[in-house]
């Protein structure tokens, strides 16, 4: 059953060492308020699996709260061009942070496998890419039992401990209304604990985008995605995003 919480509860719900995943994509609906609440809590480091979502990644890196980053892409396209993430670059270039890297669809498929309870799942073909080798290695070839011994790539399940998501509306049962669905459903289904913030907490959502069955905790955080945008409420604050990322173009 979904419970309604406050910002003060966030840090207690997420023990150090947890593997996190954040909703949002590029300059849209990053769960900035939730991540800030985590940063405001007691010290401790986490692992982060990151889809192309540079703002929460950079926040956690700059706060020195990541021991492991599992990523596919870090950088932001704004109206004046592409901005790399200075926090990400510094972490990889100058520190000993643990990191793994893959094609983004390996991560998506890994979460799909986790959501479905599968021991592994075929993944998109990436033959020839260096992501199949050495330190990048997550993907394996397995024999296709149905098509004459051909092999396909496969990935293991990827079970984040905690999913952090920001949406437009939620109701008291955890049902969510999302105007611009991204991969929200997959990250909620794959994760062991799900925390969702919303611009508006309403009494009831009749036709939810995502059922409250997948939501453990919900809370209202107005402007909870700022300075990224939240479609239907506010757009991204590009100036502030550039300051946060502080990267070069």
């Amino acid at each position: 059953m979904t419970t309604i919480i406050t910002l003060k509860d966030i840090a207690d719900l997420i023990p150090a060492g947890s593997r996190l995943i954040c909703g949002g994509f590029q300059a849209n609906r990053a769960p900035v308020g939730l991540v800030q609440a985590l940063l405001d809590g007691p010290p401790g480091q986490f692992a982060l699996t990151a889809l192309p979502n540079p703002v929460p990644t950079d926040m956690l890196l700059r706060g020195d709260r990541l021991s492991l980053l599992d990523t596919s892409f870090n950088g932001l396209e704004l109206s004046d061009g592409f901005h790399s993430s200075a926090g990400f670059r510094h972490a990889i270039e100058c520190t000993n942070i643990g990191w793994k890297e893959s094609d983004v669809y390996e991560i998506i498929q890994g979460m799909r496998a986790a959501a479905m309870g599968l021991p592994f799942i075929p993944a998109p073909e990436i033959a020839g890419s260096q992501y199949t080798e050495s330190q990048y290695h997550r993907i394996h070839r397995v024999v296709d039992p149905f098509h004459g011994g051909e092999s396909v790539f496969a990935v293991p399940p990827l079970n984040p401990d905690v999913a952090l998501l920001h949406v437009q509306k939620a109701d008291r049962n955890g049902n969510l209304w999302i105007e611009d669905p991204l991969y929200d459903e997959i990250i909620l289904q794959a994760s062991r604990l799900t925390i969702v913030s919303c611009e508006e907490l309403v009494d009831s959502i009749d036709r939810p985008t995502i059922s409250g069955l997948f939501v453990d905790h919900v809370l209202a955080i107005k402007n909870g995605a700022a300075p990224t945008g939240c479609r239907g409420y506010y757009g991204p604050d590009e100036k502030r995003l550039q300051e946060i990322l502080g990267g070069t173009r």
Binding site: P52, S72, F73, G75, D103, V104
Partner: peptide, 18 residues
């Protein structure tokens, strides 16, 4: 050691196959 750490390949390895 990286001289310049890039953003990452996102989905380009698989898109080239798709």
């Amino acid at each position: 050691i990286w001289l310049v750490r890039g953003p990452g390949s996102i989905g380009t390895p698989s898109a080239a196959w798709f």
